[in-house]
């Protein structure tokens, strides 16, 4: 049953993404000032939102683990961090491509870019820490603490951005600006692609979560086997 649900979810995500790609490339017109390149934006912003949501959930799951000490929260936190990083990479890479065309440079030490990169590094560190701790209880506890620190520092870095001067374009979505800066058709497409990416992230989370749980079962069985020798 669960298998079939996952296959179904996977199929839906793929079809949705294909449909979105079709609209993005063949239906929607070029943007007035930027031309064709603006299309990376349909992955740039939804990728960022997806990654940010993953970071937030990783913090929540980790806190839940520390409160309840139930294994499922630990495996969920590990899985969601791993799922979030590719979306963070999507955000960074599309941003770099866009920057190369519009700004003429691949990278600039702009606070927003820097903080996105720092966040990715911090969460990569979280995964490294997990790998390095052999004992499952200690791994769950220490990486949960690290995830909370990571989230606090991502928020801190993000907030301190507002104090720095930035070269990055300002907010465009109508909820932030009150409308007027973005074509409604484009905003609608953004929402579509965000849902597609979230669906994909949900699917990946379900798969990785199960793998994490299996992995822990195997580790425990190995210990049990050792106790008989």
């Amino acid at each position: 049953m669960r298998e079939k649900l996952l296959y179904g979810l996977g199929l839906a995500a793929i079809l949705y993404l294909v449909r979105n790609l079709y609209v993005i490339f063949l239906v929607l017109p070029d943007e007035m000032a930027q031309g064709a390149i603006y299309r990376v934006f349909y992955f740039h912003l939804p990728g960022y939102f997806t990654a940010a949501l993953c970071y937030l959930l990783a913090g929540i799951f980790s806190a839940m683990y520390l409160i309840t000490r139930k294994w499922k929260w630990d495996s969920l936190a590990a899985a969601i961090t791993e799922v979030g990083l590719p979306f963070a990479a999507m955000n960074l890479i599309t941003g770099m491509i866009w920057g190369r065309i519009i700004w003429g440079i691949w990278w600039t030490w702009d606070p927003r870019l820097t903080s996105a990169l720092i966040s990715a590094l911090i969460y990569a560190g979280y995964l490294m820490l997990r790998q390095a701790i052999p004992d499952p209880t200690e791994r769950a506890k220490n990486s949960a603490v690290m995830a909370i620190f990571a989230f606090a520092s991502v928020i801190f870095t993000y907030k301190s951005n507002e104090w720095f001067r930035t070269q990055h374009p300002g907010p465009v979505l109508s909820i932030r600006t009150g409308g007027g800066t973005i074509d409604p058709q484009m905003e609608w497409m953004l929402a579509h692609n965000l849902f597609a990416l979230l669906l994909l992230a949900g699917l990946l989370l379900a798969i990785r979560w199960r793998q994490e749980e299996r992995q822990r079962e195997i580790e425990s069985l190995r210990r049990e086997a050792l106790s008989f020798s």
Binding site: I122, L129, A132, I133, N142, A150, S153
Partner: peptide, 20 residues
């Protein structure tokens, strides 16, 4: 404290702390 039991603690600590 978080990395004290790791074999690679001298390597892990800067990797984890510097970005923050």
């Amino acid at each position: 404290a978080l990395t004290v039991n790791l074999h690679m603690r001298e390597l892990m600590l800067p990797v984890l702390v510097y970005p923050m």
